[in-house]
């Protein structure tokens, strides 16, 4: 495929004695939405967290193979993990605003990157909140605590916070699984708008959601990448029986 932003090459992941990801090879296309589906415990979240090395936080893990970001292996000992995470933003399953004001939440990533210019921060916060389709709802109460927002607003705030550091890639780990249908729809619309600027990888439990929003879909099962193709192909004409069984709801 052309325009591959991320390439996984024979990527293996071990958690203790547990072999979580087995020889995963895949290419993620720039400025597209790639959905990752599969039953619980199939390794889809682990794969996502491997792309910004968030798994480094857990002890007792081992990695084999490579993940290339713009051609460079992010597991190369020379790579600075902090740089990688600035380039690869992440939105978590459960919205995790910090117990600060709405403004400070979005400004957090800028400030820890050493930016002190007040006007710059203000502008960037506003832009990020607009990009995350939240500006209109919060512009009059930026100094309010982020916990006062509704669940869906909190999750969009977390997206804004991630956008503020201008990553190239957005990883989303079931970002709407804790939200009601209306809030979910808003997040999905947002993802649709964001893909012109970002490469988005989204893990989802919800097959309809994957079908609605992703251009490509990867199906994981027991740590292996079973099938990876255009979403339209996966959902209408899967090449493997097991993919079809999963998509039609026979298990999982």
């Amino acid at each position: 495929m052309e325009n591959a932003k991320i390439k996984a090459l024979d990527f293996n992941f071990y958690y203790g004695a547990h072999h979580v990801l087995k020889n995963v090879s895949a290419e993620v296309i720039a400025n597209k939405v790639t959905g990752i589906i599969g039953p619980s415990g199939c390794g889809k979240s682990t794969f996502l967290r491997s792309i910004n090395r968030m798994n480094d936080v857990i002890s007792d893990v081992k990695v084999e193979g490579k993940i290339l970001l713009d051609g460079k292996n992010i597991y190369d000992p020379e790579m600075d993990v902090v740089d990688i995470r600035r380039q690869v933003g992440m939105v978590f399953q459960k919205s995790n605003p910090f117990p600060k004001s709405i403004f400070d939440n979005v400004a957090y990533g800028l400030r820890i990157n050493g930016i002190k210019d007040k006007y710059f921060i203000q502008e960037r916060v506003e832009k990020s909140l607009k990009d995350a389709a939240l500006w209109g709802e919060v512009k009059d109460r930026l100094q309010k605590n982020a916990f006062e927002l509704s669940g869906g607003q909190q999750q969009r705030l977390c997206i804004a916070r991630t956008l503020a550091v201008e990553p190239e890639i957005l990883l989303m780990d079931e970002p709407a699984s804790a939200l009601d249908p209306t809030a979910t729809l808003k997040i999905e619309e947002l993802i649709h708008q964001l893909k012109s600027k970002y490469t988005i990888i989204i893990v989802t439990h919800n097959m309809q959601q994957a079908a609605r929003i992703s251009d490509y879909t990867a199906f994981f099962m027991l740590g292996e990448l079973v099938e990876y193709d255009l979403t339209s192909m996966i959902f209408t004409n899967p090449s493997k029986k097991i993919t079809e069984d999963y998509i039609t709801g026979r298990f999982g």
């Binding site: 936080v57 902090v82 995470r85 459960k94 957090y108 820890i112 990157n113 916070r161 991630t162 550091v165």
Partner: peptide
């Protein structure tokens, strides 16, 4: 999540 959130932003 406070730690992970900060790390994911490049802290």
């Amino acid at each position: 999540s406070f730690r992970e959130g900060a790390l994911a932003l490049g802290a």
